[in-house]
């Protein structure tokens, strides 16, 4: 990674804020449909994983925690998308 840990944390924060605004602009369009909602859910998954990995520092945590958090993210988001689409 480039720069100090603080610089990376700040870049992640700026990116998370940017995609939050993006998902809002996507989500409130009058033509919003299933594809847009799935895209908004996908953005939220990326956000959640960055919070877990970078802010919560799970990227440097033992393998069991890295795996467990990824299993949680995968299971929850699969359930959300499936329940939304069916």
């Amino acid at each position: 990674m480039n720069g100090t840990p603080g610089a990376r944390t700040t870049r992640v924060w700026a990116a998370l804020c940017a995609v939050t605004v993006l998902s809002w602009r996507l989500g409130t369009e009058r033509t919003a449909g299933a594809a847009v909602t799935v895209a908004v859910l996908a953005i939220a998954l990326v956000k959640a994983r960055f919070v877990v990995r970078c802010f919560m520092e799970v990227q440097d945590a033992p393998a069991w925690l890295r795996r467990l958090t990824d299993v949680w993210l995968a299971a929850l988001w699969t359930a959300l998308v499936v329940l939304y689409l069916v």
Partner: peptide
């Protein structure tokens, strides 16, 4: 982290 999910489900999901 929890709010990220609530934000989508309650406010954005159409």
């Amino acid at each position: 982290l929890l709010w990220i999910v609530i934000f989508v489900l309650v406010y954005l999901m159409r």
